[in-house]
Design a protein around this nucleic acid. Structure first.
Lengths: 131, 131, 131, 131
DNA sequence: GTGGTCTAGACCACG
DNA sequence: GTGGTCTAGACCACC
């Protein structure tokens, strides 16, 4: 199972699931039209409650990443369903801004910040090839 | 008053205060050794609970940005007190990673992501000159 | 085959079938006394479960639109079998009311709402001529 | 309490709450900036579970009708937050179409359908004056 | 006090 | 089998 959660993390479990499904889509571990595990199945595998998984799936549905079919369960959407919108750009900016401000305040230069981003992008790229 | 909060925001008020104090330090609106408004004062000005301001100040203290004196109140520390640590790098990475993953998944290229960051850096620079 | 279903729709499949059979009757694609496809046939054509088709047919029977013969299968009834009753008026009102309320709340005027209805009626009329 | 639910109804409780809150906004029983009852309060008043109310409130938030403040609870938004969008028009059409088709099939003329709508609009108008 | 999250277990609609 | 709804009761963060 490619999906793991950290019960000790600050991040809510349902958000961890959401983030990892998005990562799975990006890394092509989850292909368009592919099914996610059923709510009950994933809950059992992760040792958590059904409703927590359901909440994650509903959020992903609302954000356009997946569809939820009556019987077939959750299906990965095509990219056009979750293409970045104006609204998302604003949201992204709002999320990045405080990180840049704090890191700058703590003495991290723009160049160094980009170096960190570069590491993350490289990391993703490697995973994409490996996966 | 340079500090404003948005009650409608998703972000907790005490975190909004924290973020803006850090921004104030970065932009040199708050200089080393300078005092922050008293807990009572700020709470009254913003029309919020004292506990909330207190929580923000305690977090800032814990993160090394300020000291809290019984008499003089909250005082801005010198940069060496909050210089980025290994721990902070890891934390920063963990915060940036899901943003990069989601934005990539939504079709935002690395170049475009950096363009957004660049805007934010420019924005801060302008404020520095202006302030 | 004039009947198509959308597996991605929120609407249950058996209700989609029901709605389209009613539309077929209205547009005279299905004439009085004409047979509907057999449960097996339709299920195979649509690639869905027999139970689902069966459920739709039973609902249509219960609502007076069709009769189900052991040998001849499902047969379209004459209009007097499904003429609007007092009960149906109430049901229709209950269905329309929340739509009018929400649309009014969202700033859609009565005139505009009627304009939307007019479009739908026109659409049906065109289909009637075309079909 | 202006809000009542029907436990025997086909409509899910959380949707009944949603619909009635929207009605309350339309009829100006709930004014801009006004607070809805707290999740716990309303649940207790209606004799239902907290989560059911919470689900309704979250849906209303998502649809732009209300904001959910950390401490102040749910607050009614200004109309511009839930103005009809293109997307909503399509959704409305899709909801109205099968009602028009079935009613036409059952022998209800366009004129009579509008008469029914007229009744509903009048009903709302009277309530607006009365409330 | 508020809402948010999570658990545990039930019943139902759909296919 | 699937997801959707509802209940009951717990703990937490925020203010």
């Amino acid at each position: 199972m490619w999906l793991t959660i950290d019960l000790r993390s600050e991040t809510a479990i349902y958000l961890q699931i959401r983030d990892q499904v998005i990562q799975g889509i990006l890394l092509n571990e989850l292909k368009i039209g592919e099914s996610l595990p059923s709510v009950r199945q994933l809950a059992a595998d992760l040792g958590i409650n059904m409703h927590t998984v359901s909440k994650a799936y509903n959020l992903l549905k609302q954000e356009g990443f997946i569809q939820i079919h009556r019987q077939k369960g959750a299906i990965v959407n095509a990219p056009n369903s979750y293409q970045a919108s104006e609204e998302y750009y604003e949201q992204l900016k709002k999320a990045v801004k405080p990180l840049i401000i704090e890191s700058s305040c703590r003495g991290i230069s723009k160049g160094y910040f980009y170096k960190i981003c570069e590491q993350i992008y490289r990391n993703i790229g490697l995973l994409e090839k490996g996966g």
